[in-house]
Design a protein around this nucleic acid. Structure first.
Length: 567
RNA sequence: GCGCCCAUAGCUCAACUGGACAGAGCGUUGGACUACGAAUCCAAAGGUUGCAGGUUCGAAUCCUGCUGGGCGCACCA
């Protein structure tokens, strides 16, 4: 909120200088306003003088001085000074921070959310694991990143949909059917030599056993049986996946099936479009896509010489379909091992006459599970992968989600099972949740002490009406400890964090913010008493905690982590 | 061989996308509860940001070349 105003002040000052003929450079400026590391450098700072220096042919320091003189802070700033070689530092008045707090108290958190996504539709496609086996830990990471990103984008008013793409047309499903078939024969007493390339997980045996238990008849002919079992097994597996996701707090708006693309003719249609534009050509009996027209990449096959279409073909059709459904931005969340696929998919969008930048791919790096300080290997083939379900059962949803959000997604993640399980100070999840519980506890004590607090409930705008002294007005001017100011500033930074997180598509920023925010609270708590002899001061401090708790809960809600009142 | 990603305190990671003296947590050492929850707080120690160059007012961040790790490069999915 304040940050934007600072940027505006700089723009105005710049314009003033331009109008006066002090600066002879016509272009508009987009000043970068940041929060300096050192508190001595003020609350906000800009490097605009450095940017302008080469254009104005003056020293940054001179430009900063002139600009600073022309900034009318409109009562926002205590002082504005020029430091270093040309930074302009803004020291915001404490009263401004406090009234920001009061605004949040009176109008609620939502009222000040930046509406940067207004009127824009986003489709986030994630997880999209083939229904051939249970979700493993890597899928879990992608699931959380996608889910939280969707929450973040929603909070800044994007119209967001979550979609799961089911590859149910390819060979993998047939392989699944074949695997089930063999297990079935095995249960019936046949000696089976299980070939490589089939799925060997225990869950296949479970499915086979289930078939027998339910007395389901399968077709006699092997091919028919496998076809039947493919469908049956993948449906069972898909149900399991949905259940895991649900328990993980991830719910999709839609499931899109690859077979639908074929049945509706969208794949053929798309291929025909590419062919007629001369972007697809035949060679060696196959149909190729001219990736080379758009990327430094090899041409790729759309239709194999045996007439079968590749995944690439259906993926193009799928993304075209997404655009047709009216989404402005397409976000795909993939495992990082698919990175090589990005150029050709973007190229295909371009080939279809779309803006390739509409597609944003977020890569999720691998997760290494640690137990007793040692990595646990995982291989789907060998059937000893570590499933999301196991991790969920082991450490719980809150810890699992939080841990996945503690790294930026394109970095490897070491997931320490033992640490995530600990209910101790080493576990950052509890650090944040504890703050909320602590605040709640203070509210409980306040009530017990007879400090009149009217409904600390959502939607009530004046929760502290009639605090002890009988006053309804809260004197926020009493909040002047350094720790109180740090906390207030932290609260107001929330909006910058959300916006930054939404623009960069980086959910982990919110996690770090929350840890930092509650750290400020814990320090404050140890420094000052909330409930004290001075009833006015008590009221002011309770109000501060009230708003703080709202922000913590809001943040945790976005992360999909619970905020228990007692723990 | 070509391409993408990563390398930051003993460990796990940040650093607002090029900003000012590189920050947290864990671990180590020392301190703070007979009033609001010690799942907390305060303090100290800990760094040539893998190496070598370059770009500029300024580089962990951008460019080049190495070293070491991950992943891609199918008429597979």
């Amino acid at each position: 909120m304040i940050r934007k105003k600072i940027a505006e002040l700089i723009r105005e000052a710049y314009k003033g200088c331009k109008d006066k003929g002090i600066f002879i450079y016509d272009a508009d400026i987009e000043p970068i306003v940041e929060i300096p590391r050192e508190s001595d450098f003020g609350d906000y700072s800009t490097n605009i003088a450095f940017i302008l220096a080469p254009k104005l042919r003056k020293s940054p320091r001179d430009i900063a001085n002139v600009l600073a003189e022309h900034i009318d802070s409109k009562g926002l700033c205590e002082k504005i000074d020029v430091a270093g070689k040309g930074f302009i530092n803004f020291h915001i008045k404490d009263t401004v921070w406090r009234s920001g707090l009061k605004d949040l108290f009176e109008k609620g958190i939502d009222a000040f959310m930046p509406h940067i996504g207004e009127g824009r539709r986003v489709l986030i496609e994630f997880v999209s694991a083939n229904p051939t086996g249970p979700l493993h830990i890597g899928h879990g990471r992608g699931a959380v990143v996608g889910d939280v990103l969707a929450n973040i984008l929603s909070s800044v008013k994007y119209d967001v949909s979550r979609e799961y793409y089911i590859n149910d047309a390819g060979r993998q499903i047939a392989t699944l059917g074949e695997s089930t078939y063999l297990r079935l024969l095995e249960i019936k007493g046949e000696k089976i030599d299980f070939p490589d390339g089939l799925y060997k997980g225990e869950y296949i045996k479970d499915i086979a056993a289930m078939l027998i238990q339910m007395g389901i008849e399968i077709p006699d002919k092997r091919d028919d049986a496998i076809r039947f079992l493919s469908q049956f097994s993948s449906n069972i597996v898909m149900e399991g996946i949905k259940k895991d996701l649900l328990d993980f707090g991830v719910v999709f708006d839609s499931y899109f099936r690859e077979t639908e693309l074929y049945q509706s003719g969208m794949v053929d249609d798309t291929i025909e479009g590419l062919r007629s534009r001369g972007i697809a050509y035949e060679k060696d009996g196959a149909l190729w896509f001219k990736t080379g027209l758009f990327e430094k990449d090899e041409d790729r096959v759309l239709i194999k010489s045996d007439g079968e279409k590749t995944y690439f073909a259906s993926d193009i059709a799928y993304h075209r379909n997404k655009i047709k459904r009216g989404y402005d931005t397409l976000i795909d969340i993939w495992g990082s091992d698919h990175h090589g696929y990005i150029p050709r998919l973007k190229a295909s969008l371009e080939a279809l006459g779309e803006d390739r930048e509409r597609l944003k791919v977020i890569l999720i790096q691998f997760v290494t599970l640690l137990k007793d300080g040692k990595p646990i290997g995982m291989s789907t083939r060998a059937g000893q992968f570590t499933t999301l379900r196991e991790v969920l059962d082991e450490v719980g949803r809150d810890a699992a989600r939080f841990f996945f959000l503690m790294r930026k997604s394109d970095a490897h993640l070491e997931f320490d099972l033992d640490l995530a399980k600990k209910t101790s100070n080493e576990n950052p999840v509890y650090y944040v949740q504890y703050a909320n519980a602590r605040i709640e506890s203070i509210f409980r004590n306040a009530r017990e002490q007879g400090i009149l607090i009217k409904g600390i409930t959502e939607g009530t705008q004046q929760p502290f009406e009639g605090v002890a002294s009988g006053k309804t007005d809260i004197n926020i001017g009493l909040l002047k400890l350094r720790e109180e100011m740090d906390l207030i500033k932290g609260i107001i930074h929330f909006y910058d964090v959300i916006e930054g997180s939404a623009k960069s598509l980086e959910p982990h920023r919110l996690t770090f913010y929350l840890i930092d925010l509650v750290g400020r609270f814990h320090s404050y708590y140890n420094k000052a008493r909330i409930l004290n002899e001075n009833s006015e001061l008590t009221a002011a401090r309770l109000m501060l905690l009230y708003v703080l708790q709202k922000v913590i809960k809001y943040g945790l809600k976005i992360l999909g982590v619970s905020a228990p009142d007692k723990m």
